[in-house]
Every structure is written in C-alpha cells, then in structure tokens.
C-alpha cells in the first residue's frame, strides 16, 4: 500500500515538475517581451524588422525615461501614496476588525456582511461622485486625496481579512490580559496584534500593491506633476495617436519592481496570513 503511494508520488512529482516548467514559461514570457522591448531601439521594436530579442541592446529607452520625464517624481508620489494608504488601512482595519471579532453589539453581522458588498460597487462609475466628495474636502490634486480615495477599497478588505484572523486568536489569552487590568485597546495591541503578524503582512502587502497599481482615480483626481503617480505617467507615453513603446515598457518594468520586492519581504507571512484571514471570513 505504502509503496504504491510513494510510487505514485514520484510520478506526480515528475508531472509536477513538467507542469511547473510550462507554468513558468506562461507566467514569465510576457515579462520577457516587456524587458526585451525596453532594451531595443525603435527600429527593432516595430514591424517585421522587430526582433525576438534585442540584437543591439540599448538603454536609450531608460535614458529617455529618466532624461525627459520626471520618472523619479512619479516613483516618489506612488510611494508616498501607497505607504500612506497602507498605514491607514492597517490602523482602521485593526480597530474595526477587533470590534467585529470580539465585541457584541447590535448590527454586527450586518456590518460584517456589508464589508463584502462594498466590493460590488463598480469603481468605473464612482469616480464622478467621489470627485465631488474630494472637491468638497479640497483634496483634489493632493496626495491625501488619493490616499483617501484608495481607502475605499483597502479598508473594507483589510477589516474583513483581519476580522477572520482575530477570531482565531485564543480567547483565553485575551481574557487573561483583561483580568490583569489591560484595557480593550491594550489587549488588542499587546495580545492580538503580536499573534496576527501574518494577517498584518497580508494587509500591508495588498494595500500597498492595490494603491501602487491604481489607475482610474489617479487620472481623474490628480493634475500636477507633483502628485502624479507612475501609472498615470505611463499614459503620457501615448501622445495623440502615437505610442512610445520603448520608454513605456521601461517604465512598466521598473514600476513592477516595488510590489515584487514587497512580496519577497512578506512572502513567508502572506501565505500563512491568507490561510487564516480572508480565506475563512
């Protein structure tokens, strides 16, 4: 019995290895094309003279990116906004999730379910009323405005995810802390949060990438170069009816790096955090 299982395990492993190669090609090929395009001169980019790999690799597109566009400013703005959004999502999410996971009050179940429904609201249309809200708050064309706008998708998600995770923290630990004279907030900070690091990692990671990647709100709510984000900067490589693919792909490639680094840092926890958080809620 055991032998057949280990035999089939070995077969499965080889099937797995084979599929892994296929999946890697499927996943990475578009990246290859992105990077290859960014390293070509125009002549190799267009038409049938387009080459499958850069015959004469050049950094001209990157030079153009850094030389003629304020790309570093875009990076700065995207970073400020992504970090600001992440910090607030964590804070709001922790507080709300604690209430939903640990406290009894009327309306609790309704709010918990409502969090999911907020996702259904299609952003493609919300930008106009949201623009009005931002105008009233005088937050058009500011970092704060975008941070706030992005809270509309990151806060429900983080609250929901943390709620699921907080529930899995043993009650006894918290009871002990409360008996020792800890306040509710104290027990949240001292007992629950230290045990929820994986979920916090997931929230950090998701809030950061989603803010970093957002496009529609950024385009509508921001005018000046001082606030412009990377995804918006990309759209400026389309002038009337001409695309500048070289620098656009260079910018694309560079802008995927930060979320990737985030994932590398948080990977260990993300998998664990998802197990207990979102996935159960």
């Amino acid at each position: 019995m055991v032998r057949t299982t280990s035999g089939s395990r070995r077969i499965l492993k080889w099937i797995g290895n084979g599929l892994l190669v296929v999946l890697l090609v499927w996943t990475l090929l578009p990246f290859y094309w992105m990077i290859a395009t960014s390293l070509k001169a125009d002549r190799e980019i267009y038409g049938f003279e387009a080459t499958l790999y850069p015959h004469r690799p050049t950094l001209a597109a990157y030079g153009r990116l850094f030389g003629t566009t304020p790309f570093m400013k875009y990076v700065r703005n995207s970073t400020i906004i992504a970090i600001g959004n992440t910090v607030l999502s964590l804070a709001f999410g922790c507080l709300g999730a604690y209430a939903l996971a640990r406290l009894r009050f009327p309306g609790r179940a309704l709010i918990a379910r409502g969090l999911v429904v907020t996702y259904l609201v299609p952003p493609a249309l919300l930008f106009i009323p949201l623009f009005a809200v931002m105008s009233v708050l005088r937050l058009i064309d500011t970092h704060q405005g975008l941070i706030l706008a992005y809270l509309s998708f990151s806060v429900p998600f983080s609250t929901w995810l943390l709620m699921g995770y907080f529930r899995s923290v043993p009650l006894e630990l918290e009871e002990a802390a409360l008996v020792d004279g800890c306040s509710r907030l104290g027990s949240l900070v001292r007992v629950i949060l230290p045990m929820s690091l994986p979920a916090l990692a997931v929230v950090t990671f998701f809030s950061f990438t989603q803010s970093w990647n957002e496009f529609l709100y950024a385009n509508v709510f921001v005018n000046s170069v001082e606030v412009r984000t990377i995804t918006m900067g990309l759209s400026l490589f389309v002038v009337e009816d001409v695309f500048f693919w070289g620098p656009m792909m260079a910018a694309s490639f560079l802008s995927t790096l930060p979320p990737l680094v985030m994932y590398l840092i948080f990977q260990r926890w993300v998998v664990k955090g998802l197990t207990l958080g979102a996935v159960k809620g």
Binding site: F92, L95, Y98, L100, L115, V133, S152, P156
Partner: peptide, 20 residues
Amino acid sequence: LAWGLLTPTLLVILFLVAYP
C-alpha cells in the same frame, strides 16, 4: 466601544463607498 472602534471604517464606507 465597538462603534468607536468602527468609526474610521464606517466613515470610509459611508463617504467613499455608500454615498457615491
């Protein structure tokens, strides 16, 4: 306490999701 803790989340939902 629960409502207090939920205030920021609810504000976000109210103004940035529900109102629009």
